[in-house]
Amino acid sequence: MNARSVPAAKRPPGGPVLQGDVTRALEIAFFEELAAVGYGRLSIEAVARRAGAGKAAVYRRWPSKQAMTAELASQAALAYVRAPDMGNLHDDVAQFVRDTMAALSHPLASRIVPDLLAETTRNEELAEALLAGIRTPRRENAARILHRAIERGELPADADIELGLDFLVSPTYWRLAVIRTPVDDDYVERLTAKIIAAMKA
């Protein structure tokens, strides 16, 4: 979701704002507000105000800021990184790495992801909601890359899927979200080669 590229919905003269437009405006406002103030200071009132809507519009869609965060963060995370089927393991891994880099490099995500991870250490309910909505489905989705590679004979039948999934995601997250070091195409190729070598070891 590129919140910067989509303007908030405005009420046209003499007509109502469509419900879909209100929902979209609230989604954009949520991510912008979360990036600006963090989860701890996030409020329904501020999201509604940023979207040009009333609090009731938020509560009709989400019962709380935690429910709003869990649903919208999950939707955004799952939309950004998919399991590409490029026909071979190298290209699948390389595209997955590029997609992950694009997601973590997004100007909103680069502020939101570290904040939510920190918040999950203090908020067990939020942690459980995000694990269920993001970690589990994303790992299941990424596992398709490895299962396809096994079917094509590119990985051994007894390949460690769980560890392979860690190889797919962890180096990119460390590089961009933790040490915040720039990447380029050469880095993608070198990382792809190392990930595949580790999976085959």
Score class of each variant (00 low, 15 high):
Gln19His: 14
Glu154Thr: 06
Met1Ser: 11
Leu163Tyr: 13
Ala25Lys: 01
Ala193Gln: 02
Val81Asn: 01
Arg139Lys: 12
Pro156Asp: 13
Thr69Ile: 08
Leu155His: 04
Met199Gln: 07
Arg144Glu: 14
Ile145Gln: 03
Ala79Val: 12
Leu34Gly: 01
Ile161Asn: 02
Arg60Ser: 14
Met199Cys: 04
Leu176Asp: 00
Val183Thr: 07
Gly52Asn: 07
Phe96Leu: 09
Leu131Tyr: 10
Ala132Tyr: 04
Leu176His: 01
Tyr39Phe: 13
Ser110His: 11
Asp99Gly: 03
Pro12Gly: 12
Asp21His: 09
Leu126Lys: 02
Gln19Arg: 15
Pro7Gly: 09
Glu27Tyr: 05
Asp115Gly: 07
Val183Ile: 09
Glu140Lys: 01
Ala70Phe: 00
Pro63Gly: 06
Thr100His: 07
Gly40Leu: 14
Lys194Gly: 00
Gly14Leu: 09
Asp92Met: 01
Asn123Cys: 06
Ala103Phe: 09
Asn123Met: 05
Arg82Gly: 13
Ser74Pro: 03
Asp160Trp: 06
Ala70Glu: 04
Arg98Thr: 12
Arg144Cys: 10
Thr69Lys: 02
Glu162Ile: 08
Glu140Leu: 12
Lys10Tyr: 09
His106Ile: 02
Ala177His: 00
Val183Ser: 06
Asp166Trp: 12
Thr121Ser: 13
Trp62Thr: 05
Ala8Ser: 13
Ile112Met: 05
His90Tyr: 11
Tyr187Ala: 03
Lys55Glu: 14
Arg135Glu: 06
Thr23Phe: 12
Gly153Phe: 02
Ala35Ile: 02
Asn88Leu: 11
Leu146Arg: 04
